[in-house]
Design a protein around this nucleic acid. Structure first.
Lengths: 156, 156, 156, 156
DNA sequence: TTTT
DNA sequence: TTTT
């Protein structure tokens, strides 16, 4: 039985284009880096900003939609759950990562998409985008491997 | 201006007693490790369980309440926001941590508390509990230091 | 395309046993009345309590589970969406109702259930419970008819 | 003690300009009508749309901000709680209303505002807007009086 | 890295 | 009444 609730709700903007990969079985896995910024007053009364960069992962059909419609700068609503992973880096050191596994997404219309929150994309050749380019410089807060997903790695 | 929404909602059980510390200025900072468990069927049709251990932090008045009323096993509702931190470990290696900064809490009545969801506690001497014991076996996924908080380190 | 987010999250206690009915096609529709209580200080500094009674509706499989496991007094987490309906009462007057259409539920262990948050129920004969008794004193804020559901009336 | 969680999260568009009133004590009360639209397939496989119109109320400082920056068509994130009220209409009949009492709001940039999610408004004379005109034709799903608020009617 |  |  499931015990407990693990729910995340985010509204933010993408720091980069989505990164879509496919499992051996053909399931899409799309990752985005999503910014949310909050403000607080420090003790001197100055506005202090702080931006969190969330690693959000979309699986399956949602991964295809996210990879197709989201772009750098897009404003998006995401709902999902927290997943913490532990892995051994290439340097042999144990590392931790935190991901939000999305189970709902909605575009919100803003810079980076064609506007309008979810309509047809303005791009002409979306299909061959996914796996060609070395779009690998995502300096995400926490780095974790993603190349070795098995087909049943969809988390729900 | 704040841009974006960064919201976490958790219902889970504490893996250990809370850990309360105080800043130089006397502000309470309480940390708990909160478990949520989800299930999914793997490809063989077997129920697969997975437990996430969330690091939740309560500041100020909420930190005092959490430290006073929560106990190992307590069932609790927490609302807060995600905060990702980067720090250098004692081994000189850069590490990352993820915390949920709580801004709302509600006890839910269950094992570990006196029952009743937020009623008076049954314990008699809560005060001298905080910093004595080597309660270090917290099953927290990711470990981060917490001793060096300044007084204005409250995140909102 | 869906536009917008319509999400409700409740943790509360049932004011009565659930009320389960079935459509002609055999789909379960279970209604509960769920209390949440908040406090605020009035201008004289006195604690003022206020209880909201939410009408929550579960369809299909979730309706069966809710009807089977929930009882008066049960503590439950509910996630769903708001639905406003307009109907003509038996007195010929137009009326409005507000329901939360649940799409997730989790028992939280407390008075009214067998404890344990979702475990097997203690009852022996759950089946013939549904439609016998005149359980009509539901403290529901707003009353609406529910007998005439068609089979495709499931709202998602 | 508060018992339970009563939380609503909405992202939608305003059907009309906000309606701001002031209590005798000068507290702003702003009401908006917010649309969210969902889709589902009916049994014939056709896409069925359904729009909910939420009555959202902002008190105090938030009421001033909402009245100032939101406009018909604005896209907005709202977080709040459900409140059900019962009142006697001018026709002597008892009526019910449901409101979402907002405690957080964030503009999302879209038609109806100057774009950009919360920036300075483009309007030139916002000040005398609030109380003059007979903007009374809001056919909100459920109608309730709002003229007779006392100063301590702020709900938290 | 985004956005305002 | 909004929006796409």
């Amino acid at each position: 039985m499931a015990r407990g609730i693990n729910k995340v709700i985010l509204v933010g903007n993408l720091g980069n284009d989505p990164d879509t990969k496919y499992t051996q079985g053909g399931m899409a896995i799309t990752r985005i880096s999503l910014a949310t910024t909050s403000v607080r007053k420090d003790k001197d009364g100055n506005q202090q900003e702080r931006t969190e960069w969330h690693r959000v992962v979309f699986f399956g059909k949602l991964g295809e939609i996210a990879g197709e419609y989201l772009r750098k700068g897009s404003s998006v609503y995401v709902e999902g759950s927290l997943r913490y992973d532990k892995y051994t880096g290439q340097d042999g050191v144990e590392k931790y990562s935190t991901d939000i596994i999305a189970d709902e997404m909605q575009m919100l219309g803003g810079k980076g998409d064609g506007g309008g929150g979810g309509d047809r994309p303005q791009r002409s050749a979306p299909a061959q985008r996914q796996d060609s380019a070395p779009r690998r410089q995502q300096p995400a807060t926490q780095q974790a491997p993603m190349d070795d997903f098995a087909d049943d790695d969809i988390p729900f």
